[in-house]
Design a protein around this nucleic acid. Structure first.
Lengths: 209, 209, 209, 209
DNA sequence: ATCTAATCGAGACGGTACGTCGAGTCTTCCC
DNA sequence: GGGAAGACTCGACGTACCGTCTCGATTAGAT
């Protein structure tokens, strides 16, 4: 999955024993950060298609070779940028009310998609259509963790507000799918009202009676 | 919208007065068909990334100039290919039962997405993320007509199985969004079971009580 | 030999039947000339190592792709430039006197090597050391024709001023070798005096007695 | 001239007062030897074009930094390798016969050029065309000493077999130039027969009568 | 039966970005 | 302070695709 993050010729890794450092000049963490930032800025300003590896390198004050040493292509850079940017994500809320939890969560997500990051999402989903490895990485880095959290959040309500046999994967697709759909197809806007109505509609269909 | 379909330098057009033909050699309809077919085949075989204008031209036995005379870019070719390919679309069913209508419709759509055409959809949605005009055309050519039909199909049930104030746009997004989502994100497969459960879940949430 | 001059996918060639033109857009002869000129100018101004394919393209107002379509590398461009530049070469003189013929010829050659073209020669001989095909082309395009002419010029004197069994190849190497040597090694300058003395020394050794 | 041999940041040097050694770890002579050997092997095996600093370092088990600490560029490494390799050169013979002396000397030289070292010469002469300093070093390290020896060898015969006013520089160019010429242009092979005939031809032209 | 206009296949063109490679420098730890 | 390891910047490389263009050859209606 994380093969998108190159590990050339057995280099240092932070999950190793911290006492035992790799030999040779260590990776320049500052450059790494600058590259990720530059990529992020450029996508948000110009969109994915308009940016080039050279542009990222120039803005980051790095060289193209450094970018290609660590990432196989520009999409991989953005994946990592995304990972870093959303590391401190708002957790699934726990208000006690399923309806309230879901509403809050959907609203937050809409806020994310309509914010500066929206363009990044569109770009990555688009790029993933032509790159299996990128698609897998996108799922592993972004979707899987978020779905795990959301699933756990819903699980708390199983047997109470939720039917015992509720299919949580289906529910999550029913909740998030329409949002991604509107983001990508652009036929309607993403509003808070949508979040609330969608939450009500879906939950009504799966609540315990 | 349809600016994606070029009308070069005031040339002949079939929707004009049929008696008055333009002078000069008329457009080669056979070439047009071959180009659309070639484009379609290439997407389905190799995916969008593998498509180049040269490849389309070569497979169609046409020249690049011919392609660019009639379409402004390769995405426009695909849009038109899509339009032709789905011209004879299954209409929204009318079994009398809302649940049955929706199930049938979703199943048909899933069949479409998982068939050879799926790759084409992914390609177009992806390409549309970086091309506003293509996005608009995609909505106009593909989504709008289908949504209109589906809306009319649902409308028939308003006040009967459907709440009087049901938001049909929301419902359609709730029904189709998850399917597009799975198609594009690829985290789960598109099965008939999904169609049925999704129909039940969403309709349960909006049915008249 | 002339494989250094690319002939991609059976394109037009001037030695074909002139009535039957190749299909497609013909090669842009103006661009070809501009490229050769640009390359020549750059070598003479900056030397071989300092020039880049981009620089040639830019100065010629052409694109890099055009260069690579017709020549495999920049050395091949120079070879062709050389061929064109020396097409109208001064023929081997025919004064009646062997000594005079050789003197004139060597002086002309020295004039060539010490002129603007000298740099080009150095560059090509240097580049040929790392490129077998280029080396072969250099010999075929430049050396072989000149040697043939010179050989014929010497042949006229065989049995008269020249021994009957004189090894003309050896003689030519004895005459030209030292000039190339000084050009490439740079330990001494190339002067007219050298031409005369060299002619006398070598001819003395091979004249009929 | 010897600027090609770096003397970095005022470090120890063996020609200083031997009692006073520089501080710190002394230069690793083993590494130096391995680097020179590696460079030599690579030129002889693969030619100059195949040589990269990385390749030398890898084969020598050294690091690039070490190479660049002691030599300003890879050509300088080869120059030094050449210097070491030819340190124990066969001296100019002294048989008493000029003709015999020259023949032996030319044969030896041809043996050198056609042996494994030939490639090195070609490489250095080629590289020197684009590098003035390298060219100067090549002349100083390789050509000058050999020419001095040869000149002395010829000088012994002046007034005896040689004309009193013979131009020894010219003679040496007439003798060695053709050999370099064939080496670099590759139009004919270097044989012992060539050595003998060349010696006879040139000497005939300059001998005392 | 020409003439005129627009199309067609072929393929060369200028341009832009790609991903790679080598040169030479710098930074870390180890000895 | 030297050395191995290896990351870094810089700049050129040769390739690929884009969308445009320029040919000769076709194919029609207009004259």
């Amino acid at each position: 999955m994380t093969a998108l993050v190159r590990e050339p010729i057995e280099t240092h890794r932070q999950d190793d024993d911290p006492r035992q450092r790799a030999r040779g000049r260590p990776r320049d963490e500052v450059a790494r950060k600058r590259i990720l930032e530059a990529a992020l800025e450029l996508v948000e300003e110009l969109g994915f298609a308009a940016i080039t590896t050279d542009a990222i390198a120039e803005r980051a004050g790095a060289s193209k070779a450094t970018i290609y040493r660590w990432w196989p292509n520009k999409a991989a850079v953005l994946i990592e940028a995304l990972r870093e940017a959303v590391a401190q994500e708002t957790p699934f809320p726990d208000t006690g009310s399923l309806r309230e939890d879901v509403r809050i969560q959907l609203r937050d997500f809409i806020k994310l998609l309509t914010g500066r990051r929206g363009r990044l999402f569109k770009a990555l989903v688009a790029a993933a259509q032509n790159d299996l490895e990128l698609a897998a990485t996108f799922r592993a880095v972004w979707m899987a963790p978020r779905r795990a959290v959301a699933k756990a959040g819903l699980e708390r309500h199983r047997g109470r507000e939720l039917k015992k046999d509720a299919d949580l994967d289906l529910i999550m697709d029913a909740l998030y799918g329409p949002l991604y759909f509107r983001l990508l197809a652009g036929h309607r806007s993403l509003t808070e009202k949508l979040a609330d109505e969608l939450a009500d509609t879906v939950l009504e269909g799966i609540r315990k009676r």
